[in-house]
Design a protein around this nucleic acid. Sequence first.
DNA 1: CTTTGTTATGTAAGCGTTTACATGAACATG
DNA 2: CATGTTCATGTAAACGCTTACATAACAAAG
Lengths: 346, 346
Amino acid sequence: MTKNEKSSPKITIFEVAAEAGVSFATVSRVINHDIHVKSETRDRVLSAMQRLGYVANRQARSLAGGKSNTIGLLVPDLGTGYIGEIIRGIDTELSWSEMDLILYTTHRTAAKEANYVANLARGMVDGLLLVLPRNPVDYIETLTRRNFPFVLIDHQGTVENCPAVGATNWQGAYTATEYLIQLGHKRIGFITGSMDLGCAEDRLKGYRSALRTNHIPEAAELIYEGNFFQPDGYAGACALLDLKNPPTAIFASNDVMAMGVMDAVRNRGLRIPDDISIVGFDNIPQSAMVYPPLTTVQQPLEQMGRVAAQMLINILKNGEKDSSRIELPTELIIRSSTSSPRDRVG
Amino acid sequence: MTKNEKSSPKITIFEVAAEAGVSFATVSRVINHDIHVKSETRDRVLSAMQRLGYVANRQARSLAGGKSNTIGLLVPDLGTGYIGEIIRGIDTELSWSEMDLILYTTHRTAAKEANYVANLARGMVDGLLLVLPRNPVDYIETLTRRNFPFVLIDHQGTVENCPAVGATNWQGAYTATEYLIQLGHKRIGFITGSMDLGCAEDRLKGYRSALRTNHIPEAAELIYEGNFFQPDGYAGACALLDLKNPPTAIFASNDVMAMGVMDAVRNRGLRIPDDISIVGFDNIPQSAMVYPPLTTVQQPLEQMGRVAAQMLINILKNGEKDSSRIELPTELIIRSSTSSPRDRVG
DNA sequence: CTTTGTTATGTAAGCGTTTACATGAACATG
DNA sequence: CATGTTCATGTAAACGCTTACATAACAAAG
C-alpha cells in the first residue's frame, strides 16, 4: 500500500506547498520574490522546491501573470556571421534576466507576413528585437499602434524616432575614406549597400563628406550601387575597373561585398593591395581570415545586441517609452588590404 | 452611452463565439481542425475570426492542451556559419508545421547546466534539437530517463542508439585522403578535432583507413591533436612543418582549422597549393571565399537541420520512438588549395 | 410513432499559475 | 485592556484555452 513511491507525477506549487507546510500562494510569492514572506518560511519553501525538483510551468505563469518572460528576435536570415554576433550579445544580456529567446526568421514567414508581427505581439513574447534588412515601416507601424515594446537593431533613417541601436555609420565611412586619402589615393571607388537602408545611405554620405573635406572631386562614375551581397561587390569592382580612369582603391559598404571585390580584382590579375586597395565594413569574422586580411570598419555587433537587449528589458521593466536611438562607435581596423597607391604614370 | 467603441479589448474565443453565434467550444474545435463541425458553421466561425482579428493565445493553448507547439534548439554557440546553416534547415522544416523555435545557447547556461535540460523539458518546449560540441551523455541520460523527445544533430559515437542525424564523416575523410594520395602525396599531415567527439574520431579513422588501403605507412608524428578551433590549425601546421620530414599536404578536421593552417603556411613563406596542399572539412561559406579557395569535404548542414526537424516532428506526432541514426552523405569539394606535390629533391 | 444511432453543438471541469482581497497574528499605543 | 497598524499567510477568482461528457437534432430502422 505504499502510495508513496510515484516516480515523477507533475510537481506543482501545490506539492511544494504541502511539502513545506504552507499554502500554495506562499510558494508563488517565493517564486516571485515577493517581499512579504518571512525569511524562515522562504527557506522552508525553497528547500521543499529543491527536494521535489520543482520547476515552474512557464505557460501557466504567462497565462496568469500576463507576461511570457520571453522576447522574440526577428531576423532576415542567418547566412553571414553578422547575425550570429548580434545574437551572442543579446544572449549574454538575456541570461542575466531569466528571459528566453525565441527566434523568428522573416524569410520563413514571408507569405503570411501581414499579420505576422501582430501574432507575435499576442501572448507569445513580451517584446521584440528586430534586425530587418528592408524598410520595416509597416511592422513598426503595427507595433507602435499596438504599443508593443520593441527595439530596432542596426536600422535607421526612414522611421521616426523609436528605440533603436545602431552604429556610427557615417563616422565609420568618413574615417575609412579619409584613411585612404591619407594613404595617397585620389580616385576611390565606392560600392553602396541597399539604398533603402539608412545605414547604407549614411555610409555613402560619410564617404562623400570625407572627399569633400579633403577637396577631392566627387565622381559619379566611381559610385556603384550594390545590394550588400557578394556578387554586387564582384560586379561593382568589374564596373569600376573597366573605367577609363579606374580607381586605385575600392571601399565596399560591407565585408561580404568587399570579398566579391577581392575576387574580381584577383581575377584580373591585379594584386591587393599593390594595385588596388580594398576596404570593407562590418568586420565579420572571416574578414580577418581572407587573404590578404581585409582592412575594414568594425561594427560593434555583439555590443549592439547587448545594448538592444538591455533597452528592451528596460522598457519591459519600467514601462518607459525610451524612444531614443543609441549609436555605438565604429572603428577602423587596418589590416593588409590597403596601402599607398603605386605611382601610376599616365 | 456607446459602450461599443472599445478599440481592441482582447479578442478571445468567447468574442468569436458570440460574433459567430455559436458556443466557444465550437470555436475551439474550428481552431483545432476538429472533424465534427458542420462546414457551414466552420465558415461562419472562420469569418468571425477574421472580422475580429482573432489570434489564439499560445500560452493558454499550451496550458490546456499540454503541448507548446514549440521546439527548443540547444547550441553551443553561433560563432561560425556552421550553426547558421543548420538553423536554416530546421527553420524551413518547422515552417510547415506551425511550430516555433526557441533558442538556447549552452555557453549561456554553463553555470546552471545541471537541471537545465530538465527545466527545458518542463512545459516550455515539446521537443529538443541538440547540437552539442562536448559529450552530452548527462543531458541524454536525463532526457531519456524522462522519456523526452529529442534528436541529436551532428553528434555520434559514445552514446548508444538514440535519434540522431549526422554525416558520413568516415567516408568523407576517407575520400579526401584518397584524393590527396591520388594527387601523389605520400606524407599527409592530419589535424584532429576534439577527440571526445564521435565525428572527430570518425574523421581520423577515415584518414587512417585511406592510408592503409593505399599502403602508405601511418606516421604518428603526422597526426596533431586539435580542438576544432582556428589556433589549433595554426599550431598544428607549425608543428607539422617543423618536422624533419614535413608533409606535403595537411588535412584539417574542419574548415576553421584549415584556415589556421593556411595562415601558418603563408607566414612561413610557403605557397598554397604549390608547396603545401590543404584540405578542410565542413564547407562553411567562407571556405569558398578565402584565397585560395579551400578544397574541403562538404557536410550537408542545411539538410541535417531539415532532417533532424523532420525526425523530431515525427516523434512528436506519432509518439514513435524512432531511435535510429541517419547519416547524410558528405561530398568532396575540390577547389584550389590542393594540387600534386612539387617534386622535392631530398 | 417510438427506438436507436449518428453527428453537431453546448457545458463544465480542468491546466498551473498570479494576484486582489480577506484573515489572523503580533505588537505597540492610548 | 480595547484598538489600530503592520506584516505574514491563506482564499478564491481569474488567465484563455482543450476536452471529456452531456445533450440536442435528425435520420433511419423497427
